[in-house]
Design a binder for these strands. Structure first.
Lengths: 133, 133
DNA sequence: TATGGAGCTTCCAGTGGGGGGAAGGTCAAT
DNA sequence: ATTGACCTTCCCCCCACTGGAAGCTCCATA
């Protein structure tokens, strides 16, 4: 398989696939013409990576997950631990974003948004929360 | 004021302040010894930037917001529009993260996490959702 | 057989928003 | 005079790609 077909079947852009080879996540063979020659196992790995990335795992987490996937003697606790840590990080990120949303939505609602210059959003940014001068 | 005092009073690291000067967000004067000489207005701008960044606005949004803040003839609708767009982006990001959290938490709960190798997390990554082989 | 276009290769640079650290100048107190 | 804290510029590093240039190869068509 050439990279184009792998890209289509894995859903990953060719650039990303080359990058994944660069950093050692996949090791496709090479044809005589210098083209990358992907096996089904390479495609499978790339699809694995695509799904792991879609769940927000970092590249290094993906590398670990992939090696655990290929390790017959893995312990599921290792996998679960990585996933739990990532889940915690996601929840933390959500909490941060929700705090921003909270503040921002209040500010947006309190701004009349017309042609006049007074704006509680700018006032808040200028002097900090709770001050409306 | 030297950069250290401004850093302390604005809450921004010196590195960040230098970077903000680099990209033209602040323009402190220079003392004879080559040190940056910040005025109160510079400090005020930096604090403004710090609060805007804490609300997740991009640097370019911050640049716009700052120029609106300094523009006496602004219309609050311009500010509100930037804030609304950013709020929408935040909500979109939250939705993405919540989808990840949903999937991940199910996977984590379904993994026994012991010394055995079978792991529904890896199975899901290997074959896609809904397949447990 | 020539040609054209699609697909492949490598390499370099840039993204956003800074952070780390080196090499060197300056200031204030001892 | 020396120390140590502070300041300066400079360049590289992070993440996970993405865009683009220059130059291959392959295949179909005229």
């Amino acid at each position: 398989m050439n990279i184009g077909e792998v890209a289509e079947r894995s859903g990953l852009p060719p650039k990303t696939i080359r990058y994944y080879e660069d950093i050692g996540l996949v090791r496709p063979l090479r044809s005589d013409n210098g083209y990358r020659a992907f096996r089904e196992t390479d495609l499978h790995k790339l699809a694995f990576l695509g799904r792991a990335r879609a769940l927000g795992f970092s590249i290094e987490d993906c590398r670990l997950l992939l090696s655990l996937y290929e390790d017959e003697s893995r312990e599921s606790a290792q996998v679960k631990s990585i996933a739990e840590e990532h889940l915690t990080a996601i929840e933390k990120k959500i909490a941060q974003l929700e705090a921003m949303r909270e503040t921002l939505s209040h500010l947006v609602m309190s701004c009349h948004g017309d042609n006049r210059p007074d704006c509680p959003i700018l006032s808040d940014l200028a002097t900090g929360p709770g001050d409306r001068n």
